[in-house]
Design a protein around this nucleic acid. Sequence first.
DNA 1: GCTGGCACTCTGGGTATTTGAGTGCTGATT
DNA 2: AATCAGCACTCAAATACCCAGAGTGCCAGC
Lengths: 352, 352
Amino acid sequence: MSHNSQQLNDRSLQLLKTLVERYISDGQPVGSRSLSKDSDLKLSPATIRNVMADLEELGLVQSPHTSAGRVPTVSGYRLFVDSLLTVKPLNTAELTRLQSGLSVPQEATEMISAASKLLADLTQMAGVVTLPKREIVCLRHIEFLPLSHNRVLVIFVTNEQEVHNKIIHTAKVFSGSELQQAANFLNSIYAGHSLHSVREALLTELQDTQAHINQGMLDAINMAQLTFNQDSIKDDYVLAGETNLMGFSELSDRDRLRTLFDAFNQKREVIHLLDQCMKAEGVQIFIGEESGYQAFDHCSLVTSPYSVGNEIVGVLGVIGPTRMAYEKIIPFVDITAKLLGAALNPKSQSPL
Amino acid sequence: MSHNSQQLNDRSLQLLKTLVERYISDGQPVGSRSLSKDSDLKLSPATIRNVMADLEELGLVQSPHTSAGRVPTVSGYRLFVDSLLTVKPLNTAELTRLQSGLSVPQEATEMISAASKLLADLTQMAGVVTLPKREIVCLRHIEFLPLSHNRVLVIFVTNEQEVHNKIIHTAKVFSGSELQQAANFLNSIYAGHSLHSVREALLTELQDTQAHINQGMLDAINMAQLTFNQDSIKDDYVLAGETNLMGFSELSDRDRLRTLFDAFNQKREVIHLLDQCMKAEGVQIFIGEESGYQAFDHCSLVTSPYSVGNEIVGVLGVIGPTRMAYEKIIPFVDITAKLLGAALNPKSQSPL
DNA sequence: GCTGGCACTCTGGGTATTTGAGTGCTGATT
DNA sequence: AATCAGCACTCAAATACCCAGAGTGCCAGC
């Protein structure tokens, strides 16, 4: 990217900037005449045309056909987003809307979907929020119920009040009371600890103290192993306002819309994409084909990870057409991520 | 409806039938010429035209414009569906696909979504299945965990392995051990009974034996009351293949599509509509505006309730354009409902 | 290096024309 | 009285065409 921005002088960049802004605001290919008026530089259309020819050669803009204005390409947008754009702070209406929407204390999942809806409503595009990765979570309570054969229904509560359940297959068949004992044992030892530390503790426990613990405890530990061994909590996300996307002519093509919505339903690709954003420090953007998924070829995705405490636990963002108001959306996503993180922080979670 | 079918002679009905069939199969307004060829009656186009004029007067068909063929109206479809149509049985491929898809033993919710997907895939329209009403369900286990203040997290397991949870607000603040006792009490008495009978038992319990039970039991009963008092399990449905609907030109209009998908997300209207179908004995059909919901003005909905044992527990169906192959869809929905009901029957639920 | 001027290109909208499918009606046939 | 053939008529969709407008590329002069 700096490759591009270095071999261009300020004037060209300035023009690219106003071109992108102009195109974003009214969706028409922008011609040399209007560009000459819009930009502060006092240049004639003819000069602009020369510059445009350069930009086109560099692959930053292109024209739909011979006698139309220019439209930014993906790299054009990219350059714009990376080094040209001037962010516009949220207005107070939006800010208060966000704050009030996310300050009401409620269940975590409600919070998530509220955030998603807010993103969608305020941007008039689609909002997406991943469910928080529950690594940090602490185990509150665990319970085993026998099913038929060697199957056991495990119910465990994390993070004060979130209930999960899972069916595990044990090596041998346990009675109800055996399971009861195992649960009691685990509850007495591990309640209050994070799942992560529980998992670790279990590993060492098995190796070290195998000698002097009884069979019941061993069984309990084995079962806990089965329960927490891996991805017991699946990645998932909450989408809102998908239908907003139907309004955009760039996307309202039948097939595009269909592949897009199919991708939303499939979830796999979207999750993968969002996962990549978890690693990013701040706002991360995929423009058009950059995502690598065909379904999003004509979309842009603006995301930001959100953290509870110091740990990144999820990602949220906005999906819309590549022609979106990045300068507004970027700070918007940024703020929302921060507000959501704060709202999810158990310390600030008011007791109702 | 019989009003219409009685004031028409067989010939007109016959013609209406082939008209609808023809229109369904190729989507073009059908003219007198092709109708004359299609029908077994040996009539000239001119005669057909007279009949058509009659049918139009009765509001059973209409022509998009002066020199186009005729298209069935909603009442035309209705008459067709009610008394004219000859159902086509499923072919073996479809049948085996359904059977194999629904015979694999799995969790109830998996079953439901499998059914929904099958409906969508095999009809190339949208499939919908309501979650079974869990009236018949039996209580397996209940557990109370204290939260802050007077809030209590209730976890209960029904139907062998389905986990539900709910937060209730109790009159006074309970300690963990008090809650434990209450749970023990309830488990010992009510485990194995249906929620319905539990609810009833609780009511009488409170009135009758108030005298000679101790405070702990009273608390337990009160809490159970709070838990089971009403709609603890919300109506919901599983939708599949919505995107199939984007393929139909009748629906692919931007605004229509949007209102339709919004309705799907809202869920409220759809649930209400499906609820009405619970009462019906067999297959129930809404054609176009008949549903009363604007979002479905251009859709038809073919549903059938499904039962576990003798009790109707849910509804499933197919949503598509009014121009759908009713003669195939109707038996299809019918069979699927029966297969799903059978598959959900705990008696036949293999122990894996 | 910038600019005005000019020829050229392409889209989009408007209008006219044709074609084909289909109707309604009328009057003859059975 | 029902059926039908024939005919005039209508309308939508396709085709062709033109025109205006927006915009470009390039050239030559400042």
